[in-house]
Design a protein around this nucleic acid. Structure first.
Lengths: 120, 120
DNA sequence: CAAACATATGAGCATCTGTTCATATGTTTA
DNA sequence: TAAACATATGAACAGATGCTCATATGTTTG
């Protein structure tokens, strides 16, 4: 680690054009953060199960809890995260709150993930 | 919370068909886990930045560290995670190890994420 | 309006995750 | 082969995350 000064390659000039190009084309910090936050929401098997459930039907929190064998509280906490990411929406029907997928993005993203997993 | 016995809706029968259908169509635990693990890899802005860097060029660890302003160690740890998820691959060129995107899945998945973010 | 029902939420706790630091492994060069 | 270079990795620590428990909020019904 000498060319790599301070463990950060500060002295290197070898591929400076590459480094510059990468820096130039890097999206804004905001977009990177938002993207990571979005995928983070998909990165939990409980939330994944909730999303698969919503593929089948619009459903209230209580049914969802029963279908997944989880407490109402745990499901509700996860639904809040999904709602904040605008992946699911809700409507009130009497005492119940019915959750549903906001749009087809969820299905598309998960399908792409499946394609990656299922190959090889 | 009475119909919802033990905080789990055990007594409810109201939407039992829905619950059954959801349970029936739920993917295997393995697939849910693998999917969540895959998206978890996308769910960190450092790894997101690494992936965007690799959109531009195949690159060695040292250049990557410089481009991102991170230590070589931190980058290397993240590259291991990306490699284990088969999102990136590597080849050795002399002293250096060059990293590159395994295939187009990464780009597709990130593009779908961007579509979701950029709407509304 | 009170009681029952359905959902949401804050606090606390155990676990997971990303970074740093030190060092090991692997490759080239003098 | 010794020294320099490039990358990988284990341990440790701080911050994030998901669940539980208790309780608050919101809706309907008697």
């Amino acid at each position: 680690m000498a060319e790599c000064d301070v463990d950060l390659c500060e002295v290197r000039e070898v591929h400076q054009e590459k480094v510059s190009e990468i820096t130039a084309k890097m999206p804004e910090e905001d977009e990177l953060y938002d993207l990571a936050e979005l995928f983070k929401v998909f990165g939990d098997s409980t939330r994944m199960r909730i999303l698969f459930a919503l593929f089948e039907a619009d459903i209230c929190v209580c049914d969802l809890a029963q279908a997944l064998g989880m407490t109402q509280s745990a499901v509700s906490h996860q639904l809040r995260i999904l709602r904040q990411a605008r992946l699911v929406s809700s409507r009130r029907e009497g005492k119940q709150v019915i959750y549903f997928l906001t749009d087809e993005h969820v299905r598309t993203i998960i399908d792409k993930g499946r394609e990656h997993i299922e190959e090889d």
